[in-house]
Design a protein around this nucleic acid. Structure first.
Lengths: 345, 345
DNA sequence: AACGTTTTCTTAACCGGTAAAGTCCGTATC
DNA sequence: GATACGGACTTTACCGGTTAAGAAAACGTT
């Protein structure tokens, strides 16, 4: 990948045109003191006339800032396309980065080890000024790696998973508990959950919280499985739940994302079951999708865009060294729509 | 955004450890001739022991390659989250970039002018070695900008929109024609289309092709509208079509993406219309979503992942100067599923 | 008028690499 | 035995900025 032979204008050209040294141009463009208003104006005029903008690569090398943050996502590419979560998260991140005229370096990776290597290469190579780490799993190697490198990062995940890293997280346990309580309050006793990827830390947290809630509420028929977050997996799981013997068949199912909930809805329809009369469905994340189905999907609603923005903001705090303590974002709130109702035996 | 005070290993440290000059280290790491096997080994060992990797920023500045390609997307952030298209496209792009250990610099922008400015800043600042341009509109300013800058780009869009730029495109006209022919062959005469954003070039192309097909097939009841690609807009458009007087009401609707088709399905259900008996629906792009609904959605199926990969591959060809001519990717093919059938009057 | 201060700007070193030109040395050539 | 040559490195000059230290001009003071 070689550079094109294009006559690029550099700081030297601007300096020559303004009749000053390149040091002066640098001062002007970084709004540092030591220049008269007149010279400053002359420099900016010259730069404008030449269409010059500082070369960020050189600027980075010279040791000041790095205007890029890294984000590596580790999920099968095919699934990513469909998961509204990430794109919405990214758009939230972007909205904050843009304010700081900062860009996002994105990369899809196959596994955590690859991500560790990538982040290290990015950091060592001064490609990024910090990173957002997502999808934590127990004993995640990225915690140690980030600390070893001294790289500013914000971890998106519960503190129990992210070690000493500054983190931003949703209170999954509370949200799951609320979801189960809601369904139980409607009168459901046999409640099932179609979870996400078992390897992920927050899936484990939700699974534990679900168990706990079922025990507290003395729900005999609680039942949960984990999947890969795909619609197909969601459909499969739902199908196997709904074809169980009538005495075991759940009357309400909670999903770990909205894609699987949509798939569940379709399975119910295909089996001739009415939602919510025969079975209630409760989605998670609540993208626009939940309002597009019929019936509309009740969901644990979550401002994913805001979540991303919050993560980015926190990263900036870490980078500038202003505390940037860990904190939770608002817990997903229950948004009842058309897919949940009391069970009709 | 200042750098962290971390003791970073540089080429000098490696050189010292291996007992050679930094020039030698550079030669070794770029696999250039002029070093004995023994020295080469010593250098690599030293680098491994110190955990050194070349600083890409410095490497870029020194004038060789840039291992980053830019992609700016111009759609309201909220919509992006839901559109499976982009994430899937990106994952395709990534799959090729990864092979070249190249990263993607992503940015969401508000309008084309902002994008032009951004791409120019990226290019001038040596942040990127090339760019992928998407969502062309008539008289797109990016064509001139890219040519003026001499920046390697691949334009995703029909050559009639992308001027002299190397481009990769789908044959929308043919696909639309096929879609309309198919519905007409099933016996539909009143066919409607819910299009995407009017400002986009390919929307115009599809609109024209739809008109043309309707004329050729002498369909009196052809009817189309444009939207913003959102599910809400799709629902609104569908609702207004399906509430038309019976004599005008379309018996088949083609959508410009799958989100709107899903929304359309839900509107039909809400109005008590059976799909496909009362109305046939045909989606576009065909993400996993189309297989998750009930009935499943027939779609003009399109390998978006492959499309992205193709765009990235073409960009590399442009960068290395190997021709890299414009070419179409496979035309979307009709994938009939459960949402299309002959009309039942 | 001489002198200390500021203000304003220049110089030069440096960031961490690359690449062209230069040096040194062993060996084949005549 | 002087000369030419090629292999193995080293030197050195960039790339395009930043920044600390230095210098010159402007200014206020006594």
């Amino acid at each position: 990948m070689t550079a094109q032979p294009a006559a690029r204008v550099t700081i030297k050209d601007v300096a020559a045109r303004a009749g000053v040294s390149k040091g002066a141009v640098s001062l002007a463009f970084n709004h540092k003191p030591g220049l008269s208003e007149a010279t400053r104006d002359r420099i900016f005029r010259a730069a404008r006339e030449l269409g010059w903008a500082p070369n960020l690569t050189a600027r980075t090398l010279a040791g000041s800032r790095v205007d890029v943050v890294g984000l590596a996502i580790c999920r099968p590419a095919r699934l990513l396309g469909l998961e509204p979560f990430y794109m919405e998260f990214i758009s939230g991140v972007e909205s904050v980065l843009t304010e700081h005229s900062c860009s996002l370096l994105l990369r899809l990776v196959r596994n955590v080890e690859e991500e560790v290597g990538l982040q290290e290469a990015w950091w060592r190579g001064r490609q990024i000024g910090g990173a957002i780490l997502v999808d934590f799993r127990p004993d995640d190697p990225r915690v140690a790696a980030a600390e070893r490198l001294g790289m500013p990062v914000v971890a998106v995940g519960h503190p129990s998973l992210t070690g000493g890293l500054t983190s931003v997280w949703t209170d999954d346990a509370t949200a799951v508990t609320e979801a189960v309580r809601y369904l139980a309050a409607l009168g459901h006793r046999r409640i099932a959950r179609v979870g996400g990827a078992a390897a992920l830390g927050h899936t484990a947290a939700r699974t534990a919280a679900f168990d706990e809630a079922a025990r507290t509420l003395e729900l005999a028929g609680a039942w949960q499985v984990t999947t890969d977050y795909s619609g197909e997996a969601g459909a499969r799981a739902t199908r196997s739940m709904l074809t169980a013997a009538a005495a075991d068949r759940p009357t309400a199912i909670v999903y770990d994302n909205d894609i699987m909930a949509v798939a569940g809805l379709s399975v119910a329809a295909e089996m001739g079951l009415r939602v919510p009369d025969d079975v209630s469905l409760l989605a998670w994340d609540d993208s626009q999708l939940c309002r597009l189905t019929h019936p509309t999907l009740s969901a644990m609603s979550h401002d994913v865009h805001g979540f991303g923005a919050d993560a980015a903001r926190t990263l900036f705090e870490v980078i500038t060294g202003e505390g940037g303590g860990s904190h939770p974002v608002p817990t997903p709130v229950l948004t009842p729509r058309g897919s949940t109702a009391p069970p009709r035996m």
